[in-house]
Nucleic acid binder design. Structure first.
Lengths: 335, 335
DNA sequence: CTGTTAGCGCTTTCAT
DNA sequence: ATGAAAGCGCTAACAG
């Protein structure tokens, strides 16, 4: 079914049909109706490929993401999807598995797809930088969502990890916790920002009490908490750099006879699991969906006008206090 | 950068360049080298749109999914992505939010995109049916992943909910639970299958003890458990139709002074949250990633040959016993 | 206002 | 073994 057949069927020219479809030229009502009728009757749908080839626009953006399975990333994806589809754009997904060679392959592929723009989320580091540059040197607009943040010449939508962490620790302070520990991940930029927020906030309140794992995992949280306990640290509050670590921390503390949150109150970060953890701790909710929307919106702006100043949005995470289950009351009464 | 420029640069014809790129015609080594060199030098990438227009193939499949944010669905997505990309296909996402009008709009859109095939996950019901048919009447191969299962004329990759549920209940029986309750969702096909498995398995072991909620939510799990308690049901084992409900159940039981898993042992289904729930209950792990791979593989088979018998794969969920945290030992020692 | 027509970049016969 | 040329379906001058 081509535009030519529609034209013939309607007894008009292809140009007229095209004009009706795209609504970008004046067409008399009479002809317009004829065309519309023909389109209905023939069940005609314009061919995107031909259109793209002719216009040079693909109506497609890509989201390069480390792992679609991660709840935060999948929410970002959803945000991107929503705004893209509203503009009649498709979004294609490229899930890199945090693997650099895979990332490179995907960038090649995205380049070949001739997408109109890409939203990028990835590891900090030289490979990410390089690949982003490769995209841009092909004149493809890029906006970074969430990370990496160490590249300043590109539009970004970031999370204010440091500020958000202050909110988290402040919550613990308001709950009258006198000694607050921090559990994070060694060598992670994100964890470091969250540590800085912790440090900012406990300044003048209590001593630093730190423990680090190698990764954002349950096991590492568990181990970090045990290390804290074994080195005889005294604390009645603890801020973990992620919910999953907080879960490990909590398990360890309980195992050692502490009651959470009465004896030791925990604060997570992510709010991916806090709400389902038996409601034993509060967390910071990352506005991932909003970040996706913002990133896509900015990408479309950039696609419209290549020039213009670099935009940097920095969203804050929101305090998420459990409101269900047996522990909710306990936590709330502590505040 | 077009194929013509490459041809000129290499001093050959466009046909030769095309042949080299697609490796589908004999080209002398000498010319081949020249062409390859020209491609490198000009940093040439073939244009997908033109290629698609000329060949009639888009090298794209779509995944129509209710909610990319759901862990099960995002894993299916990943499975699909993996196999599609291995074949050099892109996958575009259409997230319907379980909303029928949205679904219709996306089907229109997918039709217009002229994708080569679609994997479909959705609600049971007439709208899903209708939209799937619409896709097929446009000669687009479709394979259903996970649901709906009430349409038999299409390739499907399903979960054996009933059989898997038997495994779940069997686990409880092996743990010497004498009276096992079931918590499910009223009106859900999936929940009903899981109930059937429960029923199969407790037959001759104990009485049916049932409680239903309106949806797969924490609150409904909580409420269902309370109903069970209030109606004076005695049980030392409980099978919930989903992990999220199991979490609600657990909160309720604990609140009422029961110890989980000692007093009452819970079994979930999904394994999305069981592992992070303080490890208090076991669950059935849905092979979502595998389902995605299988669905995509089947889709490609179907794309290759339109005819052939309808395939129906039915995967089983695997028992997932927590192996971390304080409760793990407790559960395991009970088995 | 409407129609004709020349591309968009690639594939693919069909000659040579 | 290689090349010329005719489309694929659409858009956008341009002509009428």
């Amino acid at each position: 079914m081509t535009i030519r057949e529609v034209a013939k069927h309607a007894g008009v020219s292809v140009a007229t049909v095209s004009a009706v479809i795209n609504d970008n030229k004046y067409v008399s009502d009479e002809l317009k109706q004829k065309v519309l009728k023909a389109i209905k009757e023939l069940n005609y749908r314009p061919n995107r490929w031909a259109k793209s080839l002719a216009t040079g626009k693909g109506y497609t953006i890509a989201y390069i993401v480390p792992d679609i399975t991660n709840p935060i990333f999948s929410r970002i994806t959803k945000g991107i999807q929503d705004v893209a589809n509203k503009k009649n754009y498709s979004v294609i997904l490229a899930s890199t598995n945090f693997d650099n060679p895979t990332l490179c392959r995907y960038v090649d592929w995205v380049l070949e797809m001739r997408v109109d723009g890409v939203v990028f989320t990835g590891r900090h580091g030289s490979t990410s930088m390089k690949e982003i540059r490769r995209l841009r040197s092909a004149h493809i607009p890029v906006v970074i969502a969430l990370a990496p943040s160490d590249i300043t010449s590109i539009d970004r939508v970031l999370l204010d990890d440091r500020g958000s962490s202050r909110t988290a620790v402040d919550f613990l302070k308001k709950a009258k916790r006198e000694s607050i520990a921090f559990v994070g991940v060694r060598g992670s930029t994100t964890s470091h920002q969250r540590y800085l927020g912790y440090k900012d906030e406990i300044d003048g309140w209590c001593e630093e009490l730190l423990s680090f794992g190698e990764d954002f995992t349950w096991d590492d949280g568990y181990a970090a908490a045990r290390a804290l306990l074994e080195q005889g640290g005294k604390f009645d509050g603890l801020f973990a750099a992620s919910d999953i670590m907080a879960l490990g921390v909590m398990a360890c503390l309980k195992e050692h006879g502490y009651h959470v949150p009465t004896d030791i109150q925990i604060m997570g970060f992510d709010n991916t699991y806090a709400q389902w953890s038996g409601q034993a701790f509060a967390s910071m909710s990352i506005p991932a969906f909003e970040m996706g929307m913002k990133a896509a919106t900015q990408l479309f702006d950039r696609m419209d006008e290549t020039v213009g100043e670099i935009k940097n949005y920095r969203l804050v995470a929101e305090l998420a206090v459990p409101n269900k289950g047996p522990y909710a009351k306990a936590i709330k009464s502590l505040v």
